[in-house]
């Protein structure tokens, strides 16, 4: 693979930006960069897990987005800590958290498929239900996270967190899912052209349902782990709404669907975590941080809209396929990395 082929890979930019931010941090702080990387690797996996779920949803095509991930993370945090405390098993607690995510996603799915509610509204409504349950749970909540699980999440042999390795494994599984399984190929087909996928015999409704449930489960998993790592709170998941969408988009996944880039989620997540570190180092406020992040997402969408996205936009609005020269950017594999 030569340099040009590498540059054409959509996931490269997240990593490039992460390296750039890392270099700036090293220069400003004047300390060794190893510790910064280690810290970023221990925070990024949470964002990657929820981001992978969001990526699957966005890949399902125009209009698909899951805005219930943030409330799910908060709720799953409480539920998993409570269940762990009452059963004494962290595994059961995590499973309960995942289950909460699936239940909330089930509400969204029924609304989307059964009642034809637009996904953004359906997941918003399901998220509201989750938040109100969270609030009632948070009232007088006394259980503390499992110490064993917290220790496990903090294990860093040779500076590399165990969790990062595990989540890298999950990412690899998602890549295999998208490339090698019927579900993955069907999802990508649905995302490119839903009508064509339906006529090609793909059970569109089942694929969409599976995707939202997977996103809910992954958000639930994130919440369970995060609550053990930090502590359960009502706004545990708040920042993950914008961030999960942002890492997907910056990672090179097409916002219009049909192309998923799991590795890109990693690059973008590291970039975001390092950016947080840099902004804290410089001493900016949270408001300024969000301003910066929002601006970055818009910038990426603007840049992508100028090239890749337009050439690959499903043809509904185009009268003719683009001549060969214009489409070369989208001819590669649809699940890079």
């Amino acid at each position: 693979m030569n340099i040009r082929a590498l540059v054409a890979r959509p996931w490269i930019w997240g990593f490039a930006a992460a390296v750039l931010v890392w270099l700036i941090i090293v220069i400003i702080s004047g300390q060794g960069g190893g510790q910064t990387v280690s810290l970023a690797l221990s925070l990024a996996p949470y964002l990657v897990v929820v981001g992978l779920g969001q990526m699957l949803v966005i890949t399902a095509g125009p209009g698909n987005i899951d805005v219930s991930v943030a409330p799910i993370i908060s709720l799953a945090g409480f539920v998993s800590v409570a269940v762990t405390a009452s059963t004494g098993s962290a595994v059961v607690g995590i499973l309960a958290g995942v289950g909460v995510g699936v239940v909330v996603a089930l509400i969204s799915t029924v609304a989307i498929l059964g009642l034809s509610v637009p996904p953004i509204i359906a997941t918003l409504a399901a998220g509201l239900i989750a938040s109100s349950v969270t609030l009632s749970l948070a009232n007088g909540f006394t259980a503390v996270p499992d110490a064993g699980l917290r220790q496990l999440l903090n294990v860093r042999p040779a500076g590399i967190p165990l969790l990062a390795v595990a989540v890298a494994g999950v990412t690899a599984l998602v890549i295999v899912l998208l490339r090698r399984t019927i579900y993955g190929r069907s999802l990508i087909a649905v995302g490119q052209n839903r009508r064509a996928a339906e006529r090609a015999g793909i059970p569109v409704a089942r694929i969409i349902a599976t995707t939202y449930l997977a996103s809910g489960a992954l958000a639930g998993l994130t919440g369970s782990l995060l609550a053990a790592y930090i502590a359960p709170s009502a706004d545990l998941g708040t920042r993950y709404l914008l961030d999960s969408v942002a890492v997907v988009v910056i990672g090179g996944t097409l916002i219009s669907g049909g192309r998923a880039v799991p590795v890109g989620v990693w690059g973008a997540a590291l970039f975001f975590i390092l950016l947080d570190g840099l902004v804290n180092l410089v001493g900016w406020s949270t408001a300024a941080q969000n301003l910066l992040k929002g601006g970055l997402v818009l910038l990426v969408l603007f840049l992508a809209g100028g090239g890749d996205r337009v050439a690959g936009t499903p043809s509904r609005f185009r009268r003719r396929p683009r001549p060969a020269a214009a489409t070369t950017t989208t001819t590669g594999d649809n699940s890079h990395g």
Binding site: A196, A197, R199, S315
Partner: peptide, 13 residues
């Protein structure tokens, strides 16, 4: 399908 742009082609593949 007859309307291949709308219900046939998967354009990114």
């Amino acid at each position: 399908p007859g309307d291949r742009q709308r219900s046939g082609v998967l354009p990114l593949w």
